[in-house]
Design a protein around this nucleic acid. Sequence first.
DNA 1: GTTACTGCAAAGCTTTTGCATCCCT
DNA 2: AGGGATGCAAAAGCTTTGCAGTAAC
Lengths: 145, 145
Amino acid sequence: MEKYRDIGLKLTPQRLAILHYLEGNKDHPSAESVYRAVQKKFPTMSLATVYSTLSALKEKGSLLELTIDPDKKRFDPETRLHNHLICISCRRIVDIHGEYQLDLPDNANHNFAIIGSQVEFYGFCPDCSPKQTTPVKEASHVRRS
Amino acid sequence: MEKYRDIGLKLTPQRLAILHYLEGNKDHPSAESVYRAVQKKFPTMSLATVYSTLSALKEKGSLLELTIDPDKKRFDPETRLHNHLICISCRRIVDIHGEYQLDLPDNANHNFAIIGSQVEFYGFCPDCSPKQTTPVKEASHVRRS
DNA sequence: GTTACTGCAAAGCTTTTGCATCCCT
DNA sequence: AGGGATGCAAAAGCTTTGCAGTAAC
């Protein structure tokens, strides 16, 4: 937890609890999820404190804010560039660590200064058996359970 | 507008106004944007009607709900699979129509039944001169304005 | 004539803000 | 000590819902 002091954050017990919960967390939790988890060990914890801490961490570059869930923000302690696999039924989000070297053709960059890219794969997770929403071509071989 | 009757929606004047605004629209408008635009021609229009119409169109598969903007939902009348270029300063969203055939290694699909993928490119649009937030390597040659 | 849509208001969520108190450094 | 963090409550967006009146089919 040294590194958090180094980036200029006061290490309060509340923050340590949040940091501990986030450490290595692969659930891409929402603010509410962080709150519920941390509150168990720390009953006086306030939701506003969670938001303020998440915001501070984001500001310092130690946390990623994901815009993957239409209903709320999700957070990811893994700040290295990576991609996601999203269950369109239960909204489970899984990290994908394969790198995709995607280049935008020069004539398609619309004069943007491009900084990075992110890939989102959509599908049904093993717990959400594929309901035939849209006829899926080419995906049947991946189908499972 | 025939196709909308065909999918089982009543064609009210309000809906026609919304459909007309969305037709070919490349702005990826929010519900509020649709409301403001349509209200000009249709002062009695209610925001709830906009939400309900957008929701109905989404339901019918004639509209995509984008989860690209952290603050609100954006909508896209282009329902064919495509990718986006996003300005991290002004949140402008531009369509990218190049196809990327992205395959997830079999050992990385986490037993998901994958339906599709979407790529998001991030950067600064021409109107938002790159402010040095993060040192950007390799992007300077694209820089402009 | 039915059924579904509209518009208004109210409510529901997520997220932000103000402010007095507290506590890390 | 001082400045930032906490916690509570209130407020601010965005979105949904309930319902009476109305219009499309």
